[in-house]
Design a protein around this nucleic acid. Structure first.
Length: 432
RNA sequence: GGAGGGGUGGCCGAGUCCGGUUGAAGGCACCCGCCUUGAAAGCGGGCAUCCCCGGAAGGGGAUCGGGGGUUCGAAUCCCUCCCCCUCCGCCA
């Protein structure tokens, strides 16, 4: 959410910034008009309330003196009715403004390249060299199905498409990846591990900006009273960021750096044609998520270190990747600046997203009310919130299957992971 | 699921029966000053948030879990919803 004051005071600048993300102009116009209306109503209502307060006090004083105040009381009854009308009108306008504000995306940081499509993203750096396989690389689903460790057929039987069952060594590999990532981030990168609810309420989803705009992407529980419905989290970013909602933290306690493993649930509405085979795009996938809550002065340093923390996972797994700075139109709704990390997938001959690290600045903090008290005391200020995958576990598993595939169809386990698999160094065929 | 208790400022905690100078006592924490070689203690003072008007000084409004109602006036009365705690039952 953007501050209304900023929109009121610098409408052209906001419009320009939003235009680079593709739109928002008409919403801005509506907002400015609604804001004008609101302030007019507010002034009138507050003048009447001031009068009522003064008179009521006088009535109280008169009554204590035993004097008659029925004329004033009659008058104030009429004033009260008028106030009620104005307040009702005000409430409608406030609701409109809230709805409009919730529909506006964050403003991009000045260092973000303006662009219309993903082609305008900027490659920042590459690490590692794709291994020369010496044979035609197979896709992860070909590898996995041949080994009997990825079972898409049975998954769609018991659920539907875009689910998978992992067998034996693949299931174990996934668990190993989770452990490996959590250990790295907690022991070496300074994050605190949390286990969080996978179902959250609507207010929480609003705080991180999944709602109201992206409801169709969420799985939701059915309740007799819809207001009490819960949503399956699409990422641990949601509970981790909302954790400090309606709190005032102390600057001395910042930054807060959290890591959590959770499954993520997404409807993937509108992606019917994309990545239909394999487990690139699933309704349920595992992810180890990093979240930082910090001060505005330190949030961009924090973004850089978060990307490095996520990259470290790929380095240790010896998977080639590149880091990409997303352009204005490719960023998520809440982000002011985003780096994607893309891992090499031999079967596709290209890099594919495996992590996304964003600084949301105060956008989520304003919605969720996450503030901090500055070290010297004084007014509480909004925090900046950041999130990043460290990493998407399912896609990491894919990357291992594809990058470590052998001519005989087996898959070598990356050295760093072997201690987490009881020394296992290779996946060979199982009988599902 | 049943029975009871409770939600007040950064925290603790009065006030709610009997509505009016209570934005709210007191304490803690915090900030400034005095005292002190320094610190502590002690003493004095300050200290909620948001919104609107205003260049500022300042003025006004709202907020005692949320929403609604009664009233000239509500932290206090009424309705409703939410959350937390204790006990019983059930249960991984």
């Amino acid at each position: 959410m953007l501050p209304l004051k900023l929109i009121r005071e610098q409408p052209e600048a906001v419009a320009r910034a939003l235009a680079t993300r593709g739109g928002g102009g008409d919403i801005l116009k509506e907002l400015l008009e609604a804001d004008r209306q609101r302030r007019e109503l507010l002034r009138t209502a507050e003048e009447l309330k001031a009068r009522r307060n003064r008179t009521s006090e006088a009535i109280g004083a008169a009554k204590r003196r035993g004097e008659d105040a029925s004329a004033e009381m009659r008058e104030m009854r009429a004033v009260g009715d008028r106030i009620r009308e104005l307040d009702a009108a005000l409430q409608r306008v406030d609701g409109d403004i809230e709805g409009l504000l919730l529909a506006l995306p964050n403003l991009p940081h000045e260092s973000v390249p303006a662009g219309a499509t993903a082609d305008d993203n900027e490659e920042i750096r590459r690490w590692g060299v794709p291994r020369a396989l010496g044979f035609e690389p197979k896709s992860h689903w070909e590898i996995g199905e041949a080994l009997g460790v990825l079972d898409f057929e049975r998954a769609s039987k018991i659920a539907k498409s875009r689910f998978v069952v992992l067998w034996g060594p693949a299931a174990r590999l996934e668990r190993a990846l989770i452990d490996f990532m959590l250990d790295l981030h907690t022991r070496e990168n300074g994050y605190t591990e949390l286990a969080v609810p996978h179902l959250v309420n609507a207010a929480t989803m609003r705080g991180t900006a999944q709602l109201p705009k992206f409801e169709e992407q969420l799985f939701k529980t059915v309740e007799a009273d819809d207001n009490r419905a819960l949503y399956l989290i699409p990422t641990a970013e949601v509970p981790l960021t909302a954790l400090h909602g309606n709190e005032v933290l102390l600057e001395a306690d910042l930054p807060r750096r959290y890591v959590a493993y959770t499954p993520c649930y997404r409807r993937e509405a509108g992606t019917y044609g994309q990545d239909t085979r394999g487990m690139i795009r699933q309704h349920q996938f595992d992810k180890v998520e990093l979240v930082t809550v910090t001060t505005p002065a330190t949030s961009y340093e924090a973004l850089e270190s978060m990307v490095r923390n996520a990259e470290e996972v790929l380095k240790r797994l010896e998977l080639p990747y590149r880091v990409v700075l997303l352009c204005t139109s490719d960023m998520g709704f809440a982000a002011a600046k985003t780096y994607d990390i893309e891992v090499w997938l031999p079967s596709q001959g290209k890099y594919r997203e495996i992590s996304s690290c964003s600084n949301c600045e105060a956008f989520q903090a304003r919605r969720a009310d996450i503030r901090y008290r500055p070290a010297g005391g004084g007014k509480a200020e909004l925090c900046h919130t950041l999130n990043g995958s460290g990493l998407a576990v399912g896609r990491t598993l894919i990357a291992i299957l594809e990058n470590y595939q052998e001519a005989d169809g087996s898959v070598v386990i990356p050295t760093a992971l072997r201690p987490y698999l009881g020394g296992l160094d290779r996946i060979t065929a199982v009988r599902p």
